[in-house]
Nucleic acid binder design. Sequence first.
DNA 1: CGATTCCTTGAGGCATCTCAAGGCAAGTGG
DNA 2: CCACTTGCCTTGAGATGCCTCAAGGAATCG
Lengths: 262, 262
Amino acid sequence: MQTAMLDNHGTTPIQFSRARTASTVAPTPIRTQCSTCHLKDLCLPCGLNTNDVERIDALMFGRRRVKMGQTIYREGDKFQFIYAVRSGTFKSSLTLKDGREQVTGFHMAGELMGMDGLASGNHASAATALEDAEVCAIPYAHLSDLAAANGNMQHVVSRLMSREIVREHSLMMLLGSMNAEERLAAFLLNISQRMKARGYSATEFHLRMSRAEIGSYLGMKLETVSRTFSMFQQQRLLEVDKKHIQILDLDGLSRTFDTRVQ
Amino acid sequence: MQTAMLDNHGTTPIQFSRARTASTVAPTPIRTQCSTCHLKDLCLPCGLNTNDVERIDALMFGRRRVKMGQTIYREGDKFQFIYAVRSGTFKSSLTLKDGREQVTGFHMAGELMGMDGLASGNHASAATALEDAEVCAIPYAHLSDLAAANGNMQHVVSRLMSREIVREHSLMMLLGSMNAEERLAAFLLNISQRMKARGYSATEFHLRMSRAEIGSYLGMKLETVSRTFSMFQQQRLLEVDKKHIQILDLDGLSRTFDTRVQ
DNA sequence: CGATTCCTTGAGGCATCTCAAGGCAAGTGG
DNA sequence: CCACTTGCCTTGAGATGCCTCAAGGAATCG
């Protein structure tokens, strides 16, 4: 109880702690170099100079292939790695007592996952591949050593974590003060931005997640997600064909929620 | 645009960026030592050994008095300090375009605030005192230097940030999948735990925030908060007198939302 | 081909919001 | 000391947005 209390001092509203089975995927011995990676401007090395990136290269990250539906870690798993998405899409989720899941995030190429595990030494969420994917497994202990020896490096890691905090702030705002329409618009515009940042079209893309997963993430039922998609289509804001989305009116979509968000 | 995109790569759903006026309070020249602080087991020094705490002492944090209603930083303010609450209670909030606020957290003695500013170099939220209060202003640059020289220290900082991420995960779950009753129960139990960790009664306390602020935090209207309080009172779970709360049945209150959260 | 999964759409219900009125406590000014 | 204002809370009544339940279509798979 005492330790639980100490663990909780950081303003955690609800406490999750529970052991689960070990990781589902075995590491494969492929090694990765950040310096030659095409994602280096989006991923961990972003903001580092050539010297620092070389230092990261020396860590020789393992790379793992992950099949669709597989998890790279689950709630309760020991925290050892931070994972960078090389290809594919992931979801982060928590499992509720009644078996339902709460999706807390989606992750695309160049994005990092697993930083929630640092707090207690165990992952607080699970990460599941929404399509066949590949990740770099960054051993946190090594990264930490590197950061200890290099202020620049440490700053990058801290900034990445802070970014995660800011991201969750905005999601909180979305869940706390927007209606279904605004939520879906915000979601689609966010995906759009991230696709664009990765060199894909900002107005036409394939969603990797199901209506139920979108709904869980946005705090609404899958039927409401579906209906809202249909509504946007009627308003000529979108063209929707199952998971294939075409944004017809980016500005119009923005206006849907612009009035709420500063 | 390019930099905005880079800034966004960390999966930020919605982008807030905007400059605001400078900080409202002037630093007073009182200096603080962690080693003699009664909050040291809850606050920044938690988990550090005597040596490390002495190193923190050498930073000589400034201390600031903050009057009720004053902010220590606002959205857009330059990020320079992390703040530790010495006494009093704070809220963190974002401001929506239409002027309404979204409360993203409450902070009690020993808790840290302001880590969201690291991501972009500017604070993404505002911190407002809910009663007369006192904070320690921890210069992030100095802390960062210290961490660079000391792996132990760095780990503590990272863990604090991770904790913030986990905290927001649970709040997200709350907002995404609980009803009014469950939300308020979870909120009260969390306050209860935090009061207890600070040596106060876990079953009787004074709320520093208004119904509207609770509502904003929990994603419901103030009237619904009020009605739910009344309901809990009728069920003999609580005794409510304005902001004075007495929990009559802790277990019963837990059962209200236990079925949902694993 | 049936089984399965995912999506769409409709109809009705309910939880929460909105709007409105009133109470209480603290502060202010005459 | 009292009248008045102000802020905050409570409660009611009606409206509504989203959920629940249900049925059916389309795509995928063994």
